[in-house]
């Protein structure tokens, strides 16, 4: 099959970018990234710079890859990262526009590669349970309801790819944060820091210039791991509760 690609080329963060047209011969068994590998091999043979794109595991789990294909994060197939998208879902003659994630919090580094370190800083702000190595009780000391563990796992599957931000008209990181807050908030181990966690993570997201959630739902539609929007509701509930009670509880608490 023959494809026409229009790819965003940008040398670095300081230079302006533009769309460049390419043609490439592919076959239906290739993954989308393998099709780009073929394009890159052709470019190298001509002495041109290959298209830079992030990728690593190519199994849909590391969260490295991702760009817009015709305006849709990770392309047309639901629940699929671009590395797991295969060319059998396209047909010869298709014209595809590839662009990097676009968000103020994700500056473009080169071509389709963006800087997502803001996600790391949100996790660093509070997306964890504080448990120093060696201090844990026996794994079965605290039973966890299977329903809670399963739902926590649903949320914990987030791969941090950033598609939710790229798809959101507000460039909100709500789905990403909600996934972590839901995962840890459902487990008994996550309770002691539950209020602090949501307040700190939301504050961090605001500092990073992510927008707010207005319940549009584009995030859920593109999430390759099927993270559900209802988790944002859980986060908002935690946030509201914490906003009203956390400060007061802190003041009422002992001096430590």
């Amino acid at each position: 099959m023959k494809l026409i690609l229009h790819i965003w080329r940008q040398k670095n963060q300081a230079s302006p970018g533009k769309m460049v047209r390419y043609e490439v011969e592919a076959n239906e068994h290739m993954s989308f990234l393998e099709m780009l590998d073929v394009l890159n091999e052709n470019l190298i043979a001509k002495g041109e710079e290959p298209v830079a794109f992030d990728h690593d595991c190519r199994e849909g789990i590391c969260g490295s890859c991702g760009f817009m294909i015709n305006g849709v994060a990770h392309g047309p197939l639901p629940n699929t990262t671009v590395c797991q998208l295969h060319m059998r879902h396209f047909k010869s003659g298709d014209e595809l526009y590839l662009e990097p994630w676009r968000a103020a919090a994700f500056p473009v580094i080169k071509d389709l590669v963006v800087d997502r370190s803001a996600f790391d800083r949100i996790i660093a702000a509070g997306g964890y349970i504080s448990v120093a190595t060696g201090s844990a009780p026996d794994g079965n000391a605290i039973p966890v309801r299977k329903q809670d563990a399963d739902l926590a796992m649903d949320a914990a599957q987030c791969i941090g790819c950033g598609a939710c931000v790229a798809a959101c008209p507000n460039a909100s990181a709500s789905l990403f944060m909600a996934a972590k807050i839901t995962h840890l908030g459902l487990l008994p181990q996550g309770q002691p820091e539950r209020k602090e966690r949501v307040l700190k993570m939301v504050a961090a997201a605001n500092r990073e210039l992510f927008g707010s959630c207005t319940n549009i739902g584009e995030c859920e539609a593109v999430c390759p791991k099927g993270i559900r929007m209802e988790f944002i509701g859980r986060m908002n509930r935690d946030y509201l509760n914490a906003s009203f009670t956390y400060q007061e509880e802190k003041e009422m608490a002992g001096v430590g």
Binding site: Y128, V131, D138, G139, A152, H183, Q189, G190
Partner: peptide, 22 residues
């Protein structure tokens, strides 16, 4: 055996039985 304890305490959502145990 310590590894499992550590990971559970960190919030790793291991598969569980209906009784709530691992």
């Amino acid at each position: 055996v310590n590894i499992i304890d550590q990971c559970v305490a960190q919030g790793v959502p291991f598969a569980r039985e209906y009784g709530g145990l691992l």
